[in-house]
């Protein structure tokens, strides 16, 4: 059967629809930042940035850039009315202390037991850089990963065991891919919202791991 993968914008839209009214949310660098453009207009959602912002707004108009107002990706942003600034120790207390409802991270791999690898390819000559990824991975109440289902070579990024260096152990609760949404549960992987035309058997085939259907979805 033929099917179309979700575009990056469609993935962001699908994920954003699951963020509840009043949620405190951190969007990781890369793919997850797209989610900010799709937050449901009828909900108030607080975006957190590691470098010290709650209530982060969209990018400013070109003439309104303030070099003292950056996001964690070091891009210029704005502050919403009611937003706040704070120092790094407070910011990571919010993260590590479990005060964020949702953190969305990109990843190289996610394991069936919720391990995440997203900070290093492990190549010997790579410049290592971790930033706040390991703090976010252990800290937020819900770690959601947003990533393409397959590598460019067609290998599943959802794996039995991560082969890349780990960022966090057993922390990921849900993965949004360009093929489906997959919950990582104590009873295994539960797949739902598959793209139209894609069957569970075929998804299981490309993933290479047992997938359960969600009956309530």
């Amino acid at each position: 059967m033929s099917y179309a993968k979700r575009s990056r914008q469609e993935m962001a839209q699908r994920l954003a629809a699951d963020i509840h009214d009043g949620a405190y949310v951190n969007l990781g660098i890369g793919l997850p930042t797209l989610v900010a453009d799709h937050l449901p207009k009828d909900r108030e959602i607080f975006l957190h940035s590691e470098n010290g912002i709650l209530g982060m707004g969209p990018a400013p108009a070109p003439g309104d850039i303030d070099t003292d107002l950056l996001n964690a990706g070091k891009q210029p942003v704005t502050l919403l009315p009611g937003g706040a600034f704070f120092h790094h120790a407070d910011s990571f207390a919010m993260i590590r202390g479990g005060h964020l409802d949702i953190c969305v991270l990109g990843a190289f791999q996610v394991s069936a037991s919720g391990d995440i690898a997203n900070w290093s390819t492990g190549e010997p000559d790579a410049i290592p850089a971790v930033g706040g990824a390991m703090d976010l991975a252990v800290g937020a109440k819900n770690i959601w990963v947003m990533m393409e289902h397959l590598t460019r070579k067609g290998e599943s990024k959802i794996v039995a065991r991560c082969t890349y260096p780990l960022t966090g152990v057993g922390v990921v609760k849900r993965v949004y891919t360009d093929l489906a949404v997959i919950d990582i549960t104590a009873n295994g992987l539960v797949a739902y919202d598959l793209v139209p035309g894609l069957g569970l058997d075929e998804l299981q085939g490309v993933t290479g791991l047992p997938l359960n259907a969600a009956f309530s979805a």
Binding site: A89, F92, A129, V130, M134, D135
Partner: peptide, 12 residues
């Protein structure tokens, strides 16, 4: 190389 939150908490 130190995770960002650990870096600032070590300083704190």
């Amino acid at each position: 190389l130190v995770p960002q939150g650990t870096l600032v908490e070590r300083i704190r």
